[in-house]
Design a protein around this nucleic acid. Structure first.
Ligand SMILES: [Mg+2]
Length: 386
DNA sequence: AATCTTAAACATC
DNA sequence: GATGTTTAAGATT
């Protein structure tokens, strides 16, 4: 039958390396809004080896931020100034047309003045220790800090939270292995990209711009809720399954160019009369990485203790080198704008050597990604910092 | 046209 | 039943 479960449909690596933002690659430091912040963070870097085996940290480095207010828990208002905005403030820039102007005050009794779910979840996770929360914690945060979570009559907002956690590329679940029959609850955290960018992207950005219509006469109408035993549902699933197989064939063929070149097996073309998967922004996968990393981030010497509050992963995945610290001064970090695939390879290798499971995002979109960024290695773009 | 919300199917535990 | 993934429709701008 060759059925693929949704789990099996997922890509192995996810999109924790994306090829966008190529322009800033040429100027990795200049113009980065968080440039000064990152420098100050590096200065007060308080690194420690992460010993947990639960894969809590995609990077093994943590850094303590300067203390922030401990009490008020409204979502942060945005200052268009930006020069000295709070590091964790939501940068609701033009990327979200639906959140216009300034938010931050909740008018009594209502309404929809809240930022989108994705941004609220981002803030909740940002404020949490180690940038990770369990689902119930996120629920509680919404109940306390948002108007969306104030409605006790429905649980639709919880559904929306789960939806955003699953579908947004900026969030990923730290999967726990079920030990001893008992299941421990998963944590949700921010991807390195979300942390480095200081925001999450749109949850639905990989959707097809135009939903595929059904032109066929024998094709059923929209799959409605309710009875699942009817022939409409059966037919719909049949057609969807067929197209999912087509998509998978296309993806596998594109994923391994060598295989595709050898076995000239023409994949069944996708029939756009029938439903396709919603998230299918598939791109041509980059070439497999062959070069060795020019620099290797050395393992951080253990010793320092974990900060108490507001710990946050520093975006060290963009750091590809470090000089030995000279006496009396800070070490020199070599940074690039994008995390290199070489770094990611080294990271995964180190995690494997330490018995940690690889950092993997759940969800199959947006298609195959070998964890490499085209062009990232051609120009090392190494700059010295601090 | 893109973003966001909401409902719901469906799977797994 | 809670959690997680995914599709889909409707609303907003
Ligand atoms: Mg996710």
């Amino acid at each position: 039958m060759d059925r693929l479960s949704p789990q099996e449909m997922r890509s192995e690596q996810g999109d924790f390396l994306s090829g966008r933002d190529e322009q800033s690659l040429t100027t990795p430091w200049v113009g980065q809004p968080d440039f000064t912040r990152r420098l100050s963070i590096v200065r007060s870097l308080n690194m420690q080896q992460q010993e947990e085996s639960d894969g809590a940290s995609p990077s093994n480095l943590t850094v303590s931020l300067s203390p922030t207010s401990t009490t008020s828990h409204h979502y942060l208002s945005q200052s268009s100034d930006g020069a000295h905005s709070t590091p964790m403030s939501i940068t609701a820039d033009g990327s979200s047309p639906q959140t216009t102007g300034s938010f931050g005050e909740i008018t009594e009794g209502d309404h929809h003045t809240d930022p989108p779910y994705s941004q609220l979840i981002y803030q909740a996770l940002s404020e949490a220790q180690d940038c990770k929360l369990q689902l119930q914690d996120i629920y509680a945060w919404f109940e306390k800090n948002t108007s969306k979570g104030k409605d006790p009559t429905t649980k639709g907002w919880q559904n929306s939270i789960r939806h955003n956690l699953s579908m947004n590329q900026g969030f990923y679940a730290i999967k726990n292995e079920t030990r001893g029959g008992k299941r421990t609850m998963n944590y949700w955290s921010l991807t390195p990209e979300a942390i480095r960018n200081g925001k999450v992207e749109s949850t639905t950005r990989f959707r097809k711009s135009t939903p595929k219509k059904i032109h066929s006469t024998d094709a059923p109408s929209r799959h409605q809720g309710g009875n699942q035993k009817g022939k409409v549902t059966e037919k719909w699933n049949e057609l969807r399954q067929a197209n999912q197989n087509r998509e998978r064939q296309a993806r596998n063929a594109a994923g391994s160019a060598l295989q595709a070149a050898q076995q000239q097996q023409a994949p069944t073309p996708i029939d756009d009369r029938y439903p396709q998967s919603e998230m299918s922004a598939y791109q041509v996968p980059p070439l497999p990485e062959t070069q060795l990393p020019p620099y290797q981030v050395p393992p951080v010497a253990p010793g320092s203790q974990l900060p108490t509050r507001n710990t946050l992963y520093f975006g060290m995945e963009t750091v590809n080198g470090c000089t030995p610290p000279p006496h009396g001064s800070s070490p020199v970090f070599c940074d690039r704008n994008q995390p290199s695939s070489a770094y990611m390879a080294a990271l995964q290798l180190r995690r494997a050597q330490m018995g940690q499971r690889p950092y993997v995002q759940s969800g199959f979109n947006p298609g195959p990604n070998n964890g490499s960024v085209a062009g990232a290695e051609t120009h090392p773009n190494i700059q010295n910092g601090v």
